[in-house]
Write a protein that binds this DNA or RNA. Structure first.
Length: 266
DNA sequence: AGTTAAACCTGGTTGC
DNA sequence: TGCAACCAGGTTTAAC
C-alpha cells in the first residue's frame, strides 16, 4: 500500500469512534500518499503525506474484536462491498477495507502520531513486547504494582502491550504460571519466564499468520492457523499437551482463561 | 492510584 | 422450530 495515492474514504455504520470529533471539519485526504505504516500495541498508524514535506497527519486503525483489514490491489477482481465493510479507503493502487461485524474497531484521523487522538490513545500503552528497554527487572517491577490476578494484569497491557485473551492463556501455560496468581506475588524468575513466553507466543503466532476463531482474515483474505498455536485456548476438557490432564477454564473479569491445573500449579 | 463494572455492537451457539 | 440467554478476538470510560 505504501506510496498509494488516496482518492476517497467511504465510511459505513459508525465504528468505535468517529473519524474526527463531532463538530470538527473532516480532513481533506484526496491526493495524499500512504507513507510507511507502523504499529503500536494493536493500533496501526498510517501516515498520509502530500507533495510538500509536512507534519505527518494520518489515520489510526484498530480492528477491535471482529475486525479485519483487507487490501485489494487495483486491476484484480474485487468482491462487492459487504454489509460489514464500514471503512473503505480507495487509492490509485487498490482498495483497503475494514470489515468489522461488531464495530468495535476504529479508523480515526489524527494530525500526527504524537498529537490529537493518537497521543491520547497511544500514550497510556505499556511497553512493546520487543522494546529493548523492557527487561525482567522492569517487567517485574510493574507486576509488583498490581494485586490483580496475573491474567488480568497481562491483559491490561500496562506491563507489556499487545497480549490479548488468546495469547494470555497461551503465554501463562508456556510459563507454567497459574492465571489466578496475584501479580505482585510472582517471583523475579517467574516474571522473567513469563516475559520470555509472551515473546515466544507472539512470535509463533505472527509466524503462523495469527489466530482465526471465527472471522479473522489476514490482509490477503487468508485465515490464520489457530490449531498450531493454541495449546490451551479453546481446549476445555481436552488433554493437556504436556501431561494429558484435562484443560480447565476460569472466568476472570468476564473473560475466559484456559489453563492446565496440573502443569500450572494451583 | 489501583481495581471494577459498564459500555460499545453483531452473530453464532446453547438450552428450554 | 422458535426464542431467549449467553458467549465471543478489545479497550475506553466512569465510578468505587
Amino acid at each position: 500500500m505504501e506510496g498509494a495515492r488516496v482518492e476517497a474514504l467511504h465510511l459505513g455504520k459508525p465504528l468505535r469512534w468517529p473519524l474526527v470529533p463531532v463538530g470538527d471539519a473532516p480532513p481533506a485526504l484526496y491526493g495524499l500518499s500512504i507513507g510507511a505504516m507502523s504499529r503500536r500495541g494493536k493500533y496501526i498508524w498510517m501516515p498520509l503525506t502530500g507533495d510538500v514535506l509536512q507534519p505527518a497527519q494520518g489515520l489510526l486503525w484498530h480492528l477491535g474484536m471482529s475486525g479485519a483489514l483487507r487490501w485489494w490491489p487495483a486491476g484484480r477482481p474485487i468482491e462487492p462491498p459487504g454489509p460489514h465493510d464500514h471503512a473503505i479507503l480507495q487509492t490509485g493502487s487498490g482498495e483497503l477495507r475494514l470489515t468489522d461485524p461488531r464495530r468495535f474497531g476504529a479508523v480515526v484521523w489524527s494530525s500526527g502520531i504524537d498529537q490529537g487522538p493518537c497521543r491520547q490513545l497511544l500514550s497510556r500503552l505499556g511497553p512493546e513486547p520487543w522494546d529493548a528497554s523492557l527487561d525482567t527487572s522492569t517487567f517485574w517491577h510493574t507486576l509488583k504494582r498490581h494485586r490483580t490476578p496475573i491474567k488480568q494484569t497481562l491483559l491490561a497491557g500496562k506491563a507489556v502491550v499487545g497480549v490479548g485473551n488468546i495469547y494470555c492463556s497461551e503465554a501463562l501455560f508456556r510459563a507454567r504460571i497459574h492465571p489466578a496468581t496475584r501479580s505482585d506475588k510472582l517471583t523475579r524468575a517467574q516474571a522473567g519466564r513469563l516475559l520470555d513466553c509472551v515473546r515466544d507466543t507472539l512470535a509463533s503466532a505472527l509466524d503462523a499468520g495469527g489466530s482465526t476463531l471465527r472471522n479473522y482474515r489476514g490482509a490477503d483474505g487468508e485465515p490464520g492457523a489457530f490449531q498450531q498455536i493454541a495449546q490451551v485456548y479453546g481446549r476445555e476438557g481436552l488433554p493437556c499437551v504436556a501431561c494429558s490432564q484435562p484443560i480447565r477454564t476460569l472466568a476472570q473479569q468476564g473473560r475466559r482463561t484456559y489453563f492446565c491445573g496440573h502443569c500450572q500449579g494451583r
